[in-house]
Design a protein around this nucleic acid. Sequence first.
RNA 1: GCCGAAGUGGCGGAACUGGCAGACGCGCGGGAUUCAAAAUCCCGUCCUGGCAACAGGGUGAGGGUUCGAUUCCCUCCUUCGGCACCA
Length: 888
Amino acid sequence: MAGNEISGYNFSAIEKKWQSYWQENQTFAAPDGLDKPKFYVLDMFPYPSSEGLHVGHPEGYTASDIVSRYKRMKGFNVLHPMGYDAFGLPAEQYAVQTGTHPQVTTAKNINNIERQIKMFGFSYDWSRRLATTDIDYYCWTQWIFLKMFNSWYDPIADAARPISELIQKLENHEYMVSPTGEIIYDTTHPISVLAGEPVGTFKYQELTVQQQRQIIDDHRLAYIAEVPVNWCPKLGTVLANEEVNSEGYSERGNYPVFRRALKQWMLRITRYAERLLEDLEELDWPESIKIMQRNWIGKSTGAEVCFAIEGKDDEVIEVYTTRPDTLFGATYMVLSPEHPLVAELTTDLQRQAVLEYVRQAARKSELERTADTKEKTGVFIGTYAINPVNQERIPIWVADYVLMGYGTGAIMAVPAHDTRDLEFAEKFDLPIIQVVQPPEDVDWHGYVDEGIAVNSGPYDGLTTAEFKKKITDWLEEQNLGRGAVNYKLRDWLFSRQRYWGEPFPIVHCEKCGTVSLPEEDLPLELTETDDFTPDISDDPDSVPSPPLGKLTEWINTTCPSCGGSAQRELNTMPQWAGSCWYYLRYLDAKNNQAPFDKDKERYWMPVDLYIGGAEHAVLHLLYARFWHKVLYDLGWVSTKEPFVKLVNQGMILGEDNQKMSKSRGNVVNPDTVVEQYGADSFRLYEMFMGPLQTVKPWRMQDVEGVYRFLNKAWRMIIDAGGSVHANITDAQPEGEALRRLHKTIKKVTEDIETLAFNTAISQMMIFVNEYLRLEKRSKKAMETFVLLLSPFAPHIAEELWQRLGHPVSLAYETWPSYNPKLTIDPEVELAVQINGKTRAKITVPADSEEKTIEETALESENVRSHLAGKTVRKVIVVKNRLVNIVAN
RNA sequence: GCCGAAGUGGCGGAACUGGCAGACGCGCGGGAUUCAAAAUCCCGUCCUGGCAACAGGGUGAGGGUUCGAUUCCCUCCUUCGGCACCA
């Protein structure tokens, strides 16, 4: 099987030859700002793991490479770059275990993976290569972080703005400050406090320096907050929700994760929830990915409602509900265990039980808290609330099925029409009152859909939608509530207690608080150490101690603001940071004055085609969109969205139809395949397996098929002696052969446009099978075929192109065009059906008149015998397709 | 539980906008070439019956719309992916 024959298709020699040709001639370097239309084709860059590439990587890379090569031949200036997402836990875990510096491991892994990527002959512009761990890359990651730290979200402009503008507006008294520390943007109206007295406001200057700083820090897009986080003592770090699986274990390493309140860096992505949701509309992305993002953002509309507390005039409980129309059915309330009013509202009699419950809830791991989904728990706190719509006295409970992080952390429970409340009410014997009438034959117990209001006083008979509107208006009039929107999306937990990540360009100063480094001081280099080990423990109560904390010399520095002594921030950024903007750095990878040049950004952006795995459906793609929007608001990028079109390649399974994994022993190593069959066969096979977007199993046997095809293509042009085949003549192709050529150009062109590479390859196979049988082959047809093949199997195509007499690479040859007339056969075979069953075939000239077709069909012998004794009722003729005779 | 995608020969898959189901490839069977093999070439290959012409069945299951359904509609089953107490 190996191509060792001297005169035959010797893929290893050919592939080596052309890869060095491309490199020496810089064939795929993309000049900036050419006077050509641009096309930006982006791959999701890989994490350089020690295992190297698996066969899933080159699937997407081959698809994007085909498009890149095709677009170049179509006259586009194509940007097609590659790089490495190189920060991250695995290299660091390895460092902790072996003492090898992550830098060393990472460099080694990048070398290996780059060797692999290069062996496929992808047409990357390697001069733009980057790794997120490069100092001149993360310098600008830090720079973008500073932009976020020094920005706030202006609700009036509905955009991020420099924080200096906020300070200025506060100083000028355009904005005031409420006693609770909130900013009052509209100073012409006194603030209204729900069910309370309007209260006084402060001028910024009336606040202490500490208070001023607090206000400002609370509005930065990057801020520090004490939040319940996922603490993983075994990794010695906190993890984002997304890095914890549903069983409550870390995705990396599968260690238990505990909930703890810790001070962490956060990014205010929630302010962008609405824009991230809205702007999805205009994107050419798979609908399933858009839906996943929508669900992740989780917008809901409803109302916030105030419930008075019996015996307490100075407090109310605010709840959020999407069903204000069920207010009359609220029979109890629930506060989440973390709710600030729990302590205050608990009666002495219940205090011990409640405190115990709250303490337990706080200690519960994510696992325990979600595992017992069936058994609801909770404790009555001893106090009652008053239902504002009917003055009913309803008990207040504390229960961990209500989450502090969503809505107001408190709910009104409507057991009749909410599954969770129903479960809880049944367990604790709380009253269940129907307030929605479902359609006939549907039980109202636990009916959660819309219906007609009942037991709702004056509102009886209203539909859910009408009721919602009326009651929300009423609540607003009474100052008891208002319409409200909520999102499931949470702010992004942005710090890790690890060594191998971007250091925060931040110092903590006793006098000045949290202070950012000036931009000129960037990069803040990750300092050298040989002690990467965070304090790892089995104790969920252990205190995080980042490895950077051991580097006393590095930690102690001077405050850029006051010059006094200060300490550096000890956390580092999460792996996602680097991948949030790499597509922008490619535009200008060597710039050391700015992250990228604005003119280059305007020329190249947006990304026209982004190909990668669906596993990044929400996280990477949402985070990157968020950063992009921040940069857009601050005037650094010119488009609202980074990625116009997104395609997810489907996973490649092992031969056993299972996910490839080391433990199953079904992993296919691309190196072996390339060695056996060559890169061109590898590329071709990955594209021929099936549609790019679907999941499909690897079958080593099938690689043989495309390999044979390339051999046939070779033999079609090159004879046994190694010269161009004597059958190839300068004559123009004619007849059937000419039509086959034009059909092939059409099919391959259209299929590349729609990323249907598998059927494009089928068509080329048909072409080769047919032309191999011809006595004489037109050179023009051979050249055209080689050009069509070249995006798929570029090495063999270049070699054949050269042997056909062209000294220069075909990479910038004009893509073949076809004559539509030559894609149609002069005669067509039609099926003749009787009552929908095919009974005969007839051959007629293309585009024959319906009448002629009908006549020819009825003359056919088999048709006549089937029609014997029947009456023809109707004849349907579909031109160039079939005839259907209806008879009985 | 909710959301999404998909079910077609022995296998991967193809089928425009409702118009001949199974293109192309793998595998398998038969033959040619060869001392022999590899490679290559030719013929066959959805299932059942038949030497054949041909007939019947057939795109997860059941129903519907239609002259005609892999394609559109309803119900159900299975597999995969995502989310999971979000009020």
